[in-house]
Design a protein around this nucleic acid. Structure first.
Length: 243
DNA sequence: ATGATTTGACCGGG
DNA sequence: CCCGGTCAAATCAT
């Protein structure tokens, strides 16, 4: 990958002069409501998987916030233009743990109900993340085993076994679902590879916690044992029972 | 070719 | 004027 600073340094100068503000008529939903002092619904969540919440988001900005260690990323609903969906969210890493915890601030509800993926898809995404996390943990903690016994093919096979096992445990057997099959195949999540962004690779846990304003930086993390027993499914079952 | 991301510039509130 | 939020051209990814 080319260094971004290099090409930005050579290309940023030309376009700036022609920068014009043409959007007076399409000022943002949130801003308009803020002026009118209409209540804007926001909610904050802490999660290890900030990029897989069942909706499709499009990033439109990133900013370092004063006092923060990590940048804040700005997303809006992919269907903001098509359907005028006002939903947005901000994502920022809130600690340096492994895996890192993210704070997600949601603003406005989705009006594009058709874009929410099915419960099956949400579960499927989580399950595959869990499988990947388990294998990564296994690789780092018992490298001898994965090096000597398993080639890439076997790793993939192992992952498939984990996925199918979790799917059954979660009651998400495809055969039982009343979901359009073609749509499901189109949207089948792809296994994250080494090209994925840092955040996407690291955000692997299904643990999702609603956060009150008081929590903020004093958030208490889940027991570490969740991360040191990669193939112990007890924690996952516990999660699915409550979710 | 098309859609998504990156990133410096721009805007407006405090 | 500072800073958070947003824009949009350039660039990347598929």
């Amino acid at each position: 990958m080319a260094k971004r600073d290099d090409y930005m340094a050579s290309s940023s100068g030309s376009s700036n002069g022609a920068h014009k503000r043409l959007l007076q008529d399409s000022s943002s939903y949130a801003q308009e409501h803020a002026k009118k002092r209409v209540h804007i619904s926001t909610r904050t969540e802490y999660t290890y998987a900030p990029y897989h919440d069942g909706y499709q988001w499009r990033k439109y900005g990133q900013k370092m916030i004063r006092g923060n260690t990590y940048p804040r990323c700005y997303y809006r609903c992919t269907f903001h233009q098509d359907h005028g969906c006002p939903a947005t969210k901000h994502v920022e890493q809130s600690n340096s743990q492994d895996p890192p915890l993210f704070r997600v601030i949601y603003t406005n509800e989705h009006t594009c109900s058709s874009t929410h993926v099915s419960d099956y898809m949400a579960s499927s995404i989580h399950i595959q993340q869990i499988a990947d996390a388990s294998l990564r943990k296994a690789e780092t903690e018992i490298p001898r085993l994965t090096h000597c016994v398993a080639g890439d093919g076997l790793i993939k096979e192992e992952r498939d076994v984990i996925v199918s096992s979790l799917t059954v445990i979660n009651g998400c057997d495809v055969a039982k679902l009343d979901v359009g099959h073609e749509a499901m195949q189109e949207n089948t999540p792809v296994l994250m590879d080494r090209n994925s962004s840092y955040e996407a690779v690291r955000s692997v846990s299904p643990v999702q916690l609603a956060a009150s304003d008081e929590l903020k930086m004093d958030f208490v993390e889940p027991p570490e044992s969740h991360w040191f027993e990669p193939l112990d499914l007890g924690w996952f079952m516990e999660y699915t029972q409550t979710g």
